[in-house]
Structures are given as C-alpha cells and as structure tokens.
Amino acid sequence: MRWGIVQFPGSLDDRDAWYALCRVMGAEATLLWHRQRELGGVQCVVLPGGFSYGDYLRCGAIARFAPIMESVTRFAAQGGLVLGICNGFQILCESGLLPGALVRNQGLSFICERVWLRVENAQTPFTGLGRPGELWRLPIKHGEGRYVVSGAELARLEQRGQIVLRYVDSAGRAGPDANPNGSLNSIAGVCNERFNVFGLMPHPEHAVEKLLGGEDGLKLFRSIEAHLA
C-alpha cells in the first residue's frame, strides 16, 4: 500500500510521520503538497501535526480551505482512509469530516508528555490489531486538544462506538486526574460514522522506536496496513 502525507505550510510532524512509515516500518509514503489537487493514488491519507498556516486563527480553520482538502473530502466520501493527528484532527473537525471541535486545554498551557490511552473500539481500520481495553502509551503535545461536542452528538458517538481512544491512567481508569486537557468523556480519538476517518490528539508517529521511548504507535499504523492488505 502507499501512504500520502499532506504538507500544509506550518506542518511540523509531516517528516516525522514520513520517517515512521518509510524508515521505521519500511512502507511507501509520499508527501502531498497542500496546493495540489491529486492524491496520487494513495490508500491512506495522513494529515500531520503542526501549526498549519500558523494557526493564528482557530486551529485548522485555514487549512480546511487548502486545495488538497477538496480531494481529501472526496476521497473520504468514497470510503478512503483518512488519519488526522493533532493538527490533522483539528483540520478534520474544522472540515466537518469529524464531529466536534478541539478547544484550548483546560489548564490553558501547552502540554508535552507521554499519556496512557485505552482502546475503546478495536474493530476500526485504525485499531484492528489492538484488543478492546488494551493500553497504549503515546505522547501528546498540544495547546488546543480539549475535545468538545454537543450532548446529543456525544451520546450518539458513545453509542455507535465512535470513541476509539480515551485518556486513562496507567491502570486503565478514566477520570479527571488522567485527563490531560479536559476533553469531554476523556476522548482522545474519534472516528466518523463510517469508520474510515479517524482523528486523534496523541502522536503515534512519535512512538515507533524503543530508543525514543516506545513503539505503541506502530500498532495503529500496522492496523491500517492490515486492514488494507
């Protein structure tokens, strides 16, 4: 399979995603420039972390108007897999490809640290190699990662199993002490209703090598590979 990683001006983790996929996993990945309209036949599109267009307005609010987003939206509508990491998650919410929004962390500060996540739904294309309730250790690094959504929508998300990852403590318990940014219901990652678009605040591409602190992120990328194989 071939991965496509979108580069917006201000994308920062684009090269890291590329390194994780190509150099660590040995996969094939191409960088997709924000102004192009073609996706070049990739099977999974990654919207990487960073500060697209500086994020001087709401995070992701400008990126959703990038020419490439028309193609990404069409690709998603056709059932193509789209993975949004951090800023990519914010862009997916701004584009309406995912429900909800990401607002300023409850503590008002940027947070960079490793957190524990619980796999809530292991039947998605993004988590198929995990077990339900399995704990993953991934880093977060964001100032605007607090997931919010309307009460009615939240109930639907929970009911349909669209909440894929939740912040928990090392024993797997969710709660205010294990919720770094104040996200509703400790939500760290959500899928759309068709389960082909997934956004998460943690960075799987920064957890692919033991030398750098862990490799749980590989489970996510390998799940996608396995799904498409």
């Binding site: 920062l12 983790d13 090269r15 890291d16 390194y19 994780a20 150099r23 972390g49 500060s109 940027f110 947070i111 960079c112 640290e113 880093p139 690094k141 960075h203 591409e205 920064h206 030398l211 750098l212």
Partner: peptide
Amino acid sequence: IFRQYDSLVMSNTVVGPGSDAAVIRLK
C-alpha cells in the same frame, strides 16, 4: 516549565528535558 515545550518534534529526542543532559540521535 518543560512540559510546555514540544521536545519530540523531528523524532530525534532520546533523552528529553529533566536529565543531566539531553540526548538526540543523529539519524
């Protein structure tokens, strides 16, 4: 203090803030 800084971007950080010295790898 250092929790407010991205210490991970560029995928080189072997030892981050809080130790005697930071260590990055040379890819």
